Amino acid sequence: MKGLRLFYLVMAIVGTVVPWLLFGQFFAQEGLNIPLFLQNLFVNGAAGGFSADVLISIVVFLVWATVDAQKKGMPRWWLIFPASFTVGLSLALPLYLFLREE
């Protein structure tokens, strides 16, 4: 399963870099304007639908991962929480799967 673990690691890296490039563009143009950033998540129906989908998915993932990690006695599983809040599901999910393959 080393190939699968490597895949999860690569996806965690990609899942960090791509969103932060886009977030970086926003903050470079708008400054560190968090209220505007949050407002733009729901600027129209398409953005709002996508944002709601991801936010709901991450809540479900965090609940499932917490239960799953406790059942499996996984070390360092809690890293998914800072990953979720600093990047998002694109890092938290592959990171969790990477840690789960240890």
Rank of each mutant, 00 (worst) to 15 (best):
M1E: 04
M1L: 06
M1P: 09
K2Q: 14
K2M: 13
G3S: 11
L6H: 06
L6F: 12
L6D: 01
L6G: 00
L9V: 02
V10Y: 06
V10K: 02
V10A: 15
V10P: 04
V10F: 10
V14H: 01
V14T: 08
G15R: 04
G15K: 04
G15S: 04
T16E: 04
T16N: 06
T16D: 01
V17C: 10
V17M: 02
V17L: 13
V18C: 07
P19I: 01
P19V: 07
P19E: 06
W20E: 08
L21H: 03
L21N: 01
L21K: 04
F23L: 13
G24W: 05
F27V: 02
A28M: 11
Q29K: 12
E30R: 11
G31H: 07
L32N: 10
L32W: 14
N33H: 12
I34R: 10
P35D: 05
L36S: 09
L36C: 03
F37L: 12
L38H: 08
Q39V: 03
Q39S: 13
Q39N: 12
N40V: 00
N40A: 06
N40H: 12
L41F: 11
L41M: 15
F42Y: 15
V43W: 01
V43M: 09
V43Q: 14
G45M: 04
A47N: 13
F50L: 15
S51K: 08
S51W: 06
A52R: 04
A52P: 00
D53A: 12
D53E: 12
V54W: 01
I56F: 14
I56S: 10
I56D: 00
S57I: 06
I58H: 04
I58Y: 01
I58G: 02
V60S: 03
F61E: 07
F61V: 09
F61M: 06
L62C: 14
L62S: 11
W64F: 15
W64T: 02
V67M: 11
D68I: 05
Q70G: 05
Q70S: 05
K71N: 13
K72P: 03
G73H: 10
P75T: 12
W77Q: 06
W78S: 10
W78Y: 11
L79R: 07
I80G: 09
F81T: 06
P82M: 06
P82N: 11
F85V: 10
F85A: 06
T86H: 00
G88H: 10
S90K: 05
S90E: 01
S90P: 07
A92C: 04
A92K: 06
L93A: 14
L93E: 05
L93C: 07
P94Q: 07
L95E: 02
L95I: 05
Y96G: 08
L97H: 08
L97D: 02
F98P: 03
L99T: 07
L99Y: 09
R100K: 15
E101C: 06
E101L: 15
E101I: 04
E101Q: 15
E101W: 03
